[in-house]
Amino acid sequence: MRVRVDGEVCEAEEGQTVAGVLLAAGRNSWRSTRRGGRPRGVFCGIGVCFDCLVVVNGVPDVRACQRRVEPDDEIRTQHGAELPS
């Protein structure tokens, strides 16, 4: 299947999580923190730490390590706190 990551088309497999896709593509951060603007990616890998937040189809605060990709998902970096579009 295909998804878009920050505008770029990216191949993904059924069953992959957003984090799985991003890590396999060589990225290890996709969010910046609210205060320090620091980069973050996966930390706990199992849905407890909420560090891996990403925007999926316009909805921010989605845990990349928990979210399964679906065809044509629009995935993008989350900058600090964002409102759903």
């Binding site: 799985g20 996966v42 930390f43 706990c44 199992i46 390590c65």
Partner: peptide, 10 residues
């Protein structure tokens, strides 16, 4: 920096 569990789960 990951937890050990993250490395395992991924």
């Amino acid at each position: 920096v990951f937890t050990a569990g993250a490395a395992q789960a991924l």
